[in-house]
């Protein structure tokens, strides 16, 4: 397994939105999707996932529906709203700007680190 990095503050929301953007997921599914997307490189604290989900729902970015899981259990599914989709776009754009800037800034040093 690759070494894991802690999440930067604020990144969990974008990751959750991204995970859900590919289709409705229950909470555990979101966790798995993030792990899968990052190939396990990012450590998502499971306890922190649910407050984030509820916060996004509260903000109207996610909507929820109770459904039945693959193994026939009652589960709550999260889905992106239109606002959520827009927010994801913004989030991705701003993250990319930041990443480019960071990479540029860090890349100017000769890279012995």
């Amino acid at each position: 397994m690759a070494p894991q990095a802690d999440l930067l503050p604020g990144t969990l929301d974008v990751l959750v939105l991204k995970a859900v953007s590919l289709g409705p997921l229950h909470g555990y599914g979101v966790l798995l999707r993030i792990e899968q997307m990052t190939q396990g490189a990012l450590l998502v604290e499971q306890g922190a996932l649910y407050p984030a989900l509820f916060r996004l729902e509260q903000q109207g970015l996610l909507e929820t529906e109770w459904g039945v899981s693959d193994n026939n259990r009652r589960a709550k599914y999260y889905q992106l709203t239109t606002t959520g989709r827009r927010r994801l776009k913004d989030g991705v754009a701003s993250w990319n700007r930041l990443a480019t800037a960071m990479a540029a800034a860090l890349g100017t040093r000769t890279g012995e680190a």
Binding site: G27, Y28, L31, Q46, S69, R73, K76
Partner: peptide, 16 residues
């Protein structure tokens, strides 16, 4: 109750 159910589901799925 719903919150408990949701977390319970998570734990069972993870245990599986």
């Amino acid at each position: 109750r719903d919150l408990s159910d949701e977390l319970e589901f998570h734990l069972r799925a993870r245990a599986a």
